[in-house]
Design a protein around this nucleic acid. Structure first.
Length: 866
RNA sequence: GCGGUCGUGGCGAAACUGGUAGACGCAAGGGACUUAAAAUCCCUCGGGCUAUGCCCUUGCGGGUUCAAUUCCCGCCGACCGCACCA
């Protein structure tokens, strides 16, 4: 009667085949049931999947399987974010073509993902480097161009000297390329840009409606868009100068009477003109530019300036002359490249003023402080208060003063124009998408000397990447290709040349979710299908994409809406950012040591690690993100091989909340595997139990109650993506079922208990099915069902089974629990009070006196205050 | 510097909307079964004490409340994002 051990190597491939044969996870667009779209961020085909992918895709799969069981027509597709630099690096290092390298990796990773038993619709699979896909992306580009959403301009760009390509602002992290880590340089280049700034206000305000997104991500996007409301303010230059005025941007016009200098950027047109005639200034400007290239320098850089000798007139007092400096902390890229400095209320201005001995006049007095006691030395005041030293603004709040200044200067004229106007400024810049690389989507444009830049006509699309390219030198192979770039102008027919830049790979991932809804379509999307599937109900991926990919996709949806390819503006209704899988690190004199070679003993501070082979000590390092260099990786294939996919799936969702990192431990994985075996043992023992029972007791209602309670809680937990909690509930249920099932298996229970156990086991199989689908199928079959559990509806929770007529409430004396009271569920306040007064420990506490108060929270708690 | 998140046993963590703090898992210790091992099962597992009970305990210090891990104020610490953005 001893049950055989569960063998995932046998069951997992068997059930995967059965699902495939039944086409269980292929989604039909014609299916009339309500739709649910769950998507995990598609992987870059780097070579092999890592355990982080396992966690990410398991989360999506749990949701997909659960929603399917709840009666939804679920779309759960998979594809490959397949263009990008690593393929070219591999080409250069290993003499393998990027295409070959990429598709080989895809084949390996597809096989690995299939081992996981994910309920994916593989019939919709594509890679972004498929001609079919980038063809449609080129169609989108041409339509965007036509609609004025793409433009070409010369600008200062971030140049990654190692990857020899341009990077978007979003791809520069701490002054370094996000992929290469090389220090980024500034270069002037002509580039293609998507006009994401056309949507800055909308991208900002629509964030409020994204209540299915983590607050953190919304905030990060909000800060990235960086809206500020202020005033453009024109200052007349006194005396002879190359210009007659300087325009500044300020968010604090209320502090205008605290102004003590004007500062302009080294790249400001006026600064350039002055520098042309002033060698010292030119040298100073050069110094500023050099400092500007590295963020590290900016952090420590001192505020320095150069007095131009120019003076401007204060807008409210033409006799008040303010000096003009060129300063290193003013950016040409933001606002007008010129500011007015109010040292008392801006820390940078104060540092600058203190260095150059400029006047510091406080104009906002903190509420409740005496004017005489208010002194600014080296720390500014930037809080709320009341205006002082500001003539007609005195006594106002800063907000009122802001409005007063805006309205007055909006009416005074300077050279025929209002002296100021309200201006909303954003930090967000247009998205530069040109990359000087081969392995990307070609930008479908032709440069003609006569006609200018001409989009490739749609009938001539796709512009295919040539296969015969050389990677023997750095730079863009498309540029060096002998024939590819030569083409006749589609307008005039004269010889012209192709654009050789390709698109940023973030373009590819900005609309793939829409393509999945109809990947066979000739147009980029099938409007009917896209509109009814989108927005994605639940999107799951890493927090590292909080800005880049998620902001670009939101822009793309709007651009596709404007060009008629989509009917929705927001691509992702629900967003979940999952944590990583991390692992402890180990090292000895020889360097990092693989976890598999280490044995651990002891606990707490006394934990010790030794090398298994010779017992020499190993230092236990910090828990870190898995990386090859620290050798703390775990290969999913090894896990599948020794424990099976179900164990890996179960473990990566156990213990830690999904948004937090989970620590991979060998003992934890073994624990999960033990649980797999435990479930199988219980189910198979129950299935093998003798039909004739010897009678005798067991609490059948308690078994049913436990199962239904778990059913209710696990369902709720999955809905809220509380996978770790759902798993804890399932453990609880199994603990509760263990001894009743053992009794049934031993033939020592009556028919009622046996019946209750079979019902509970059915429920258990269904509860684990989203997490461990292979085990669930095996149990379901063992329990005598001839269906697949993957086709079964989620069981209906029966509230009557979990409510009881009596409740047990804790009873507190002065807020401390002293005992409990079991009483009818619907007992009223007075009945509870009366019952409590009869309890011995309450009588003892009262010692004959009457209680001061009795608080009764029905069905919850009683507190007696003495 | 600005903005945000979070501090609970040896460890990962639970605790619905202010209502029994530590569910569940890992590790550890003890025991049963076994010739033995594996597997499995049972018990203990925040700290203290004058121990059938009582006291303390959710980073620290205050406050509100009958009642605080949860709300408020002030510190300390960790992590994340942005960063000369006017």
């Amino acid at each position: 009667m001893a049950a055989e051990r569960y063998n995932p190597k046998d069951t997992e491939p068997r059930w995967q085949k059965a699902w495939d044969a039944a086409k269980l996870f292929e989604t039909k667009n014609e299916d009339p049931r309500p739709r649910y779209y769950v998507l995990e961020m598609f992987p870059y085909p780097s070579g092999r999947i890592h355990i982080g992918h396992v966690r990410n895709y398991t989360m999506g799969d749990v949701v997909a399987r659960y929603k399917r069981a709840r009666g939804f027509n679920v779309l759960h597709p998979m594809g490959w974010d397949a263009f990008g630099m690593p393929a070219e690096n591999a080409a250069m290092q290993n003499k393998v073509h990027p295409k070959e390298w990429t598709y080989q990796n895809i084949a390996v990773m597809r096989r690995q993902l299939k081992l996981m038993g994910l309920s994916l619709d593989w019939s919709r699979e594509f890679a972004t480097c498929d001609v079919d896909y980038y063809h449609r992306q080129q169609m989108l580009f041409v339509d965007f161009l036509d609609k004025g959403l793409v433009h070409r301009k010369q600008s200062k760009v971030n140049w990654d000297p190692e990857d020899m390509t341009v990077l978007a602002n979003e791809q520069v992290i701490d002054g370094r390329g996000w992929r290469s880590g090389a220090l980024v340089e500034q270069r002037e280049l002509t580039q293609w840009f998507f006009k994401i700034t056309d949507y800055n206000e909308e991208l900002l305000t629509a964030l409020d409606g994204l209540d299915g997104w983590p607050e953190k991500v919304r905030l990060m996007q909000k800060n990235w868009i960086g809206k500020s409301e202020g005033l453009l303010l024109r200052w007349e230059i006194a005396g002879d100068a190359p210009a007659s005025e300087i325009e500044v941007y300020t968010t604090r016009p209320d502090t205008l009477f605290g102004a003590s200098f004007i500062a302009i950027a080294a790249d400001h047109p006026l600064a350039k003109e002055l520098a042309a005639k002033n060698e010292k200034l030119a040298a100073f400007a050069d110094k500023c530019r050099q400092m500007g290239t590295s963020v590290a320098a900016v952090e420590t850089a001192e505020k320095i300036g150069f007095d131009t000798g120019l003076k401007v007139r204060h807008p409210f007092d033409s006799d008040w002359l303010v000096p003009v400096y060129v300063a290193n902390f003013v950016l040409m890229e933001y606002g007008t490249g010129a500011i007015f400095g109010c040292p008392a209320h801006d820390q940078r201005d104060l540092d600058f003023a203190n260095k150059y001995g400029l006047k510091v006049t406080p104009v906002v007095l903190p509420s409740g402080m005496e004017k005489s006691a208010f002194v600014i030395t080296d720390k500014v005041f930037d809080g709320e208060g009341v205006m002082i030293n500001s003539r007609f603004l005195d006594g106002m709040t800063p907000q009122a003063a802001f409005d007063d200044v805006a309205s007055r200067l909006g009416q005074t004229m300077l050279e025929g124009r209002p002296q100021s106007e309200r201006k909303v400024q954003y930090r967000l810049r247009d998205w530069g998408i040109s990359r000087q690389r081969y392995w990307g989507c070609p930008i479908p444009v032709i440069h003609c000397e006569v006609c200018g830049t001409v989009p490739v006509p749609k009938k001539d699309l796709p512009v295919k990447l040539p296969d015969d390219v050389e990677f023997d030198r750095p730079g863009n192979p498309l540029d060096r290709h002998p024939t590819w770039r030569h083409v006749n102008c589609p307008q005039c027919g004269k010889p012209a040349r192709r654009e050789t830049d390709t698109m940023d790979t973030f373009v590819d991932s900005s609309w793939y979710f829409a393509r999945f809804t109809a990947p066979w379509e000739n147009e980029p999307t099938d409007r009917k299908q896209a509109d009814s599937w989108l927005p994605v109900d639940q999107y799951i991926g890493g927090i590292e994409h909080a800005i880049l990919h998620l902001l670009y996709s939101r822009f793309f949806a709007r651009a596709m809406l404007a060009t008629g390819h989509l009917g929705v503006a927001e691509p992702f209704k629900g967003l979940f950012t999952q944590g990583m899988v991390v692992h402890e690190t180990y090292r000895n004199e020889a360097g990092w040591v693989e976890p598999a070679k280490v044995r651990i003993s002891g606990e707490g501070d006394g934990r010790k690690a030794v090398l298994i082979t010779d017992g020499t000590p190993v230092e236990i390092g910090p828990i870190e993100k898995m990386s090859k260099s620290k050798k703390n990786t775990v290969d999913p294939d090894d896990i599948f091989e020794s424990y099976g996919a179900d164990t890996a799936r179960w473990f990566t969702l156990s213990d830690s909340p999904p948004e937090r990192d989970v620590i991979w431990t060998e003992s934890g994985a073994e624990g999960s595997f033990r649980f797999v075996q435990r479930v199988w043992r219980l189910v198979s023992e129950l299935a093998a139990a003798p039909a004739a029972q010897a009678g005798g007791g067991g609490d059948a209602p308690a078994v049913r109650k436990a199962a239904h309670r778990a059913l209710k809680l696990v369902g709720g937990d999955i809905e809220r993506l509380g996978f770790n909690k759902a798993i804890a509930r399932i453990y609880e249920l199994v603990n509760e079922l263990a001894s009743p099932i053992a009794a049934v298996a031993a033939g020592k229970a009556d028919a009622a208990l046996a019946d209750a156990c079979r019902g509970a086991a059915d429920i258990l199989a269904q509860l684990i099915s989203p997490f461990m689908p292979h085990l669930a199928e095996e149990c379901w079959a063992a329990l005598g069902h001839d269906t697949m559990i993957g086709t079964q509806p989620w069981p209906v929770f029966d509230p009557a089974l979990v409510t009881e007529n009596e409740v047990t409430m804790p009873v507190q004396i002065n807020g401390k629990r002293r005992g409990d009271l079991t009483i009818a569920r619907d007992a009223g306040q007075s009945a509870v009070e009366a019952a409590v007064m009869e309890l011995d420990f309450v009588k003892a506490a009262l010692n004959g006196a009457a209680p001061r108060k009795i608080i009764v929270v029905p069905q919850r708690i009683v507190n007696v205050v003495v």
